[in-house]
Design a protein around this nucleic acid. Structure first.
Length: 418
RNA sequence: GUGGGUGUAGCUCAGUUGGUUAGAGCGCCAGAUUGUGGCUCUGGAGGCCGAGGGUUCGAGCCCCUUCACUCACCCCA
């Protein structure tokens, strides 16, 4: 029996893991620059948190995409299908609001959704995300978007297109939903099953449907922004003004809605060509009702999530090269038992002073050991054979220049440190 | 959940209208003067041809079933 990784999961292999490190470290650095601190929350949470947080009407819940299970004690737990609700829970549970009016956190980690895998979509994927709690300033929305832009730029990704919209608030959205329903109703019978269900539960999503009949039916539907209340309308223009100030271009997209129920006002998506059908590389928005919904006092919030796997695809599409890991300094080559002992001791000494060093453990020939030294990119081959042992020295060969010299054992570590 | 595509060596792939011991490139291992890498040359190891069944004298190739991977719908990061 040979085991395989579960469907929709994947291994990050030694030859690729540096790409992941690069992406994550870049994200951390950009977050630090913007004043965000890392928050680490559990991989699973009380199932109710997600049912409440992302909304019973959301597709994640309706389509049963959550990895929920009962633990041996009988509690229903769920592998997190998104990052915001856990952050909100931790924010509340630990009273982070008490440290100041505005709290800025970032997170990174696995996300789980039971979906059919395809390019850019996995059952376990990884997201980098940020959340900004406590501000209704449109400049906060703009900062979140700006951070996303800086993040992608730092990875040498520049081909993204930013779509922005406002999905309104409890003051204006219900009225718009009625307008929309009234407009859609005559066409409803010929629309897809999903949309017929959405008509009652989540009419905004109808605008986002890709089925031709549905698209045609809503082609001239009244846009949300005509129905926005003054506050939401001002917020959107305020946000766009700041983005303009930052030189960030974005397109107003009437059709942009969110799959999760908690979003209010600003919604945005960073789209990237060359990812296949799953083109959103980063997306998010404002969720002014979520904290209260999760049992806290009314606290506005805005944030984004970004899929690491998709970011890596975008980097590949743009041929952006991550910084490669440093190769080792010395590869210790030994011939014979006495030399082996001296070599192992030297290896330990090199590592003890902080140098990266390695040796062969396959008992291979000198030639093969040299080959290995070359293959792993070592700067120096340190050769110890019978002659060297007899003279209490080692031969140090610079693999780039092919120059080699005999160095006495006692000064070897010092000479390699340089 | 619904479609399409693909499963042959560690990797990328060839395999003619079904015909004998299944191939290449890369990688790996070993050699090409004694204890010296990269380039080159030579040799070698490594395949229940995804699995199960069927048709046939004969199946990697045809048929059925099944599993996996993949892309798309859906949904989303």
């Amino acid at each position: 029996m040979r085991f395989q990784a579960p469907r929709g999961t994947h291994d990050v292999l030694p030859g690729d893991s540096f790409r992941w490190r690069f992406v994550e470290e870049t994200f951390r650095e950009v977050c630090r620059r913007f004043g965000y601190a890392e928050i680490r929350t559990p991989t699973f949470e009380d199932t109710q948190l997600f049912l409440r947080g992302i909304g019973e009407g959301s597709e994640i819940v309706v389509d049963k995409q959550m990895y929920s299970f009962n633990d041996p004690g009988g509690d229903s737990l769920t592998l997190r299908p998104e990052g915001t609700a856990p952050a909100v829970r931790a924010f509340l549970e630990n009273s982070l609001h008490a440290q100041g009016p505005v709290t800025k956190v970032f997170y990174t980690g696995p996300i789980f959704r039971y979906e059919r895998p395809q390019s850019g979509r996995l059952r376990e994927h990884h997201q980098c995300g940020i959340e900004l709690f406590g501000s209704i300033d449109p400049a906060a929305d703009a900062e979140v978007i700006q951070l996303g832009v800086r993040y992608l730029r730092s990875l040498d990704i520049r081909g993204e297109e930013i779509h922005i919209n406002s999905v309104g608030c409890p003051a204006c959205r219900p009225a718009y939903l009625q307008v929309l329903r009234r407009y859609v109703k005559p066409h409803l019978s010929e629309m897809c099953g999903n949309c017929q269900r959405r008509y009652e539960a989540n009419p905004l999503r109808i605008l986002d449907c890709k089925v031709d009949v549905c698209r045609a039916a809503t082609a001239d539907a009244p846009p949300m922004h005509d129905s926005l209340c003054g506050e939401c309308s001002d917020h959107l223009t305020g946000c766009r003004e700041v983005l303009d100030l930052y030189g960030i271009e974005c397109v107003l997209d009437d059709r942009l809605v969110r799959g999760l129920d908690y979003y209010t006002k600003t919604a945005f998506e960073f789209l990237h060509g060359g990812l296949g059908a799953q083109s959103a590389v980063l997306s998010g928005g404002r969720y002014d009702g979520l904290v209260e919904e999760c049992g806290g006092s009314p606290t506005p919030g805005v944030g984004f999530g970004s899929g690491v796997e998709r970011v890596l695809l975008a980097m590949e599409a743009e041929q952006s090269q991550p910084v490669a890991p440093e190769p080792i300094t010395a590869f210790v080559i030994t011939l014979g038992d006495a030399a082996r002992k001296a070599g192992l001791k030297l290896l330990a000494d090199l590592r003890a002073v902080g140098l990266a060093a390695d040796t062969d453990y396959a008992g291979r020939s000198m030639k093969a050991q040299m080959k290995e030294a070359n293959r792993c990119g070592a700067r120096y081959a340190v050769i110890i054979g019978e002659d060297e042992v007899a003279h209490n020295a080692a031969t140090v060969k610079d693999l780039a220049t092919s120059e080699q010299a005999s160095v006495r054992m006692e000064s070897l570590v010092g000479s390699l440190v340089e």
